Each structure stands twice: as structure tokens, then as C-alpha cells.
Amino acid sequence: MNAAKLMRDGLWDNNVVFAQLLAMCPTMAVTTSGTNGLGMGLATTAVLIVSNILVASIRHAVSAQVRIPVFVVLIATLVTLVDLVLNAWLHELYKVLGLFIALIVVNCAILGRAEAFAVRNTVAASAIDGLAMGLGFTFALTVIGLIREILGSATVFAQASALLGSHFAFLEMKIGAWNGALLMILPPGGFAVLGFMLAGKRAWELKRRQTAQATESHCSVPGPASA
């Protein structure tokens, strides 16, 4: 499987949130702003990449009977390291994400990629798969967070400099004098945004398939027989 196909799967076709509907707990809980979604997505991406690499590296040395417990221990160790790093260098983001950092351990996407892909493929392919799935997850969380933030708080990447560092201050923006609708940053708003985005994705993919089928049918129609 080539790198381009892996990236497309992770970013769109097999996206953790928009296609597989996994990791709904952090998706709904931390996406009250684009900043929170970006931070959680990047932390999860780091765990996905390293866990895939480690699983692919030891896949021949671990028997099938104990591989799930071994994978869980590896993932839990990586999440603990990420938790400590965020607490040490990005403490404001750590305080916002809180318990959901530790819950990366039980994120179905991470163990799922280890079991479905990394254990059956090379280290290089597994690293690309982890990167693609992580970036797809980050993209989903960030977009959902931005939509909820804009509608609920009338801001864009609020507190990005405080949570992610001063270099991200350029992302912060206030949209007019409107204060937003509180409902959008509450759980019902999260489900509503996700539902509309899933519907939009399905409709767009259906339209693309219909267009492709119509084009193929048109091209396959034989022209008039020559005299």
C-alpha cells in the first residue's frame, strides 16, 4: 500500500471521526474551541505514530495470545509520557484537557490501528498510517472545535497563545461584538455540529460517485458506426 493511499485513508476515506465514528468521548468533550481540539489531536497523533512504530517493530516477537495486553501496556506508557510532557511544557493546555489526556489509552482508534494495521505491516508503513490517522483525527477535532467556538463564543482559536505557546498568538481572533450562542459549546451543540458534518460528507461523497458513474457511462457509450 503506497503512502498516498495511506494518507488519503487517514485524512478522509477512513477518518477516525468522520468515517469510523471512533473516539466520540474526546470529540464531544474537548472540542469547545479550535485550540482544545488541536491540542488533543496533536497529543493523540504523537501516541499513534510511536505506538504503531513500536507494535510493527515487535510484531514477530509477541505471540497472538498476549499481544493485546502488550499493546495496551505500550500505549499506556506512551500516554503517560505525553501526559508528563504536556504538564511540564504546556501546562495551561494540560489543565484544559485534564482527564481526557489519560483517556487516550482507551481511544479505540489507537489500539484499533495497532491491531488492524501495525501488527501486519512494516515499520515505515505503520509510521505513515499513524501519522495519517493522527492528522485526520486532529483535522476533525480542530474543525469541529472551530465551528462550535465561532457559533458559541464568536472567537477563533481563543487562548491559543496561553495554551500552545506565544508563537500561536497570531491565530487568535474575535468576531465582531456578538457573544455567540451558549448551546453550541455545550454537548448538544457538539452532537449537532458532528451530525451536520457527517451528513455533508456523505452527501458530497454520494454526489462524487454519481458524477463519476455518469461520466463513466457517457464514455462507455459507443459512438455512431462509421460508414
Rank of each mutant, 00 (worst) to 15 (best):
residue 220 S to V: 08
residue 37 G to M: 04
residue 56 A to W: 02
residue 212 A to S: 14
residue 82 V to T: 06
residue 33 S to P: 03
residue 221 V to K: 12
residue 109 A to V: 15
residue 74 L to I: 15
residue 44 T to Y: 05
residue 222 P to W: 06
residue 99 L to P: 06
residue 27 T to G: 11
residue 97 L to K: 00
residue 205 E to D: 14
residue 98 G to M: 06
residue 129 D to H: 03
residue 222 P to N: 03
residue 143 V to A: 14
residue 11 L to A: 12
residue 10 G to Y: 03
residue 125 A to S: 12
residue 150 I to E: 00
residue 193 V to R: 01
residue 94 Y to I: 00
residue 113 R to N: 12
residue 26 P to H: 09
residue 217 S to D: 13
residue 187 P to L: 08
residue 77 T to S: 12
residue 118 A to L: 07
residue 170 F to H: 12
residue 113 R to G: 09
residue 44 T to H: 03
residue 213 Q to T: 15
residue 108 C to V: 14
residue 170 F to Q: 05
residue 51 S to K: 02
residue 62 V to P: 00
residue 50 V to R: 01
residue 97 L to W: 00
residue 68 I to E: 02
residue 29 A to M: 09
residue 217 S to V: 10
residue 209 R to S: 09
residue 178 W to V: 03
residue 127 A to M: 11
residue 226 S to H: 05
residue 100 F to Y: 13
residue 112 G to P: 09
residue 87 N to L: 08
residue 95 K to R: 14
residue 56 A to Y: 02
residue 101 I to L: 09
residue 113 R to C: 07
residue 87 N to A: 10
residue 190 G to Y: 01
residue 26 P to V: 06
residue 174 K to M: 13
residue 46 A to Q: 01
residue 119 V to E: 09
residue 73 V to D: 01
residue 83 D to N: 14
residue 3 A to Y: 13
residue 61 A to S: 09
residue 45 T to I: 09
residue 185 I to A: 05
residue 81 L to N: 02
residue 187 P to V: 09
residue 159 Q to K: 11
residue 80 T to S: 13
residue 9 D to F: 07
residue 25 C to N: 11
residue 126 S to F: 04
residue 93 L to E: 02
residue 215 T to I: 14
residue 95 K to G: 05
